[in-house]
Amino acid sequence: MVEKKPRILQNNRDMMWSIIPLVLLCLIVAGVASRCSFSPGGPTSGPVPQFDVDASLKYDAGVLGFPVRNPAVPEDWQPNSGSRGVAGGDGGGDVTTVGYITPKGRYLQLSQSEATEEVLVPWVAGDLRSPTGVAPVAGERWVEYAEEGSEPIWVTDLDGVRVLVTGSGTTEEFTELATAVDAAEPLTP
């Protein structure tokens, strides 16, 4: 009868012969589940999700108690997301949000709400911020909230509705979206 090797005589080769079957089993399970891929050049961007911004904002205009605008953004901007929520607290209210991906792969978010600026900014940003400047766009005064290490936020008041723009876009893209929102007429329900 073969005796078990004493622990002192076990070496790296014995460990490798134990690990190899485990690694092969993991690769087989991952391959069968189709949950991994080999990409020697690094990760690549997937397709941008499709989102019907027109239908979403039109619906929100019919159910929310404030005027909602649908800005005419450039054709190469891809709407990719939308949501509706409630910014709570004193001065809070309903919020409708849509997102766009620009041709350079940057994300811009447009939120419209009946909530006050003091409630809306922390609700979107996740923290309390202080205004850092003003961006005059198309005759409107957009209050800037810029903080080191965070995405900038621009907020204005259009006919009693707070409009907020944030995201990873450039100043030019922020200006383009702000101008489009200002030029858009409120949707009819």
Rank of each mutant, 00 (worst) to 15 (best):
G91H: 04
L57Q: 04
S111Q: 08
S81R: 04
S39E: 15
T116V: 00
Y59Q: 10
D54H: 11
S111E: 06
L57Y: 02
G99M: 01
L64R: 07
V48S: 03
P49C: 10
A87V: 06
L108S: 07
V73S: 05
L110S: 13
E114M: 13
G42A: 13
Y59L: 11
T97N: 04
E114W: 02
E114V: 12
G105L: 11
V53S: 04
K58E: 02
V48N: 01
G93R: 04
V48D: 01
V48W: 02
S37H: 14
L108H: 09
G89E: 05
P67A: 09
E114C: 08
R69E: 03
Q50C: 02
S56H: 14
Y59W: 10
L57M: 12
K58W: 00
G105D: 04
P74L: 02
S81G: 05
G88T: 13
Q112W: 14
T97C: 00
Q78C: 04
S45V: 12
W77M: 10
N80L: 01
S111N: 10
E114Y: 03
K104A: 15
L110N: 11
S56F: 09
P47L: 07
Y59N: 10
G65D: 09
D52C: 08
Y100W: 15
Y107T: 02
V68D: 05
S45K: 15
P103D: 05
V98R: 01
A72G: 00
G62P: 13
Q78E: 08
K58M: 04
F51N: 06
A87I: 06
T96R: 01
I101N: 00
S56G: 10
A61T: 08
T116I: 00
Y107D: 03
P40C: 09
L110C: 12
G42W: 11
G88S: 15
G93S: 07
G41M: 10
P67G: 08
T102M: 13
G46Y: 06
V95A: 11
G93W: 03
Q78V: 13
A72W: 00
V68I: 13
N80Y: 03
S111W: 06
F38M: 10
T116R: 13
T116H: 13
Q78D: 08
F51L: 07
V68M: 08
P47W: 00
F38G: 06
W77A: 04
D94F: 00
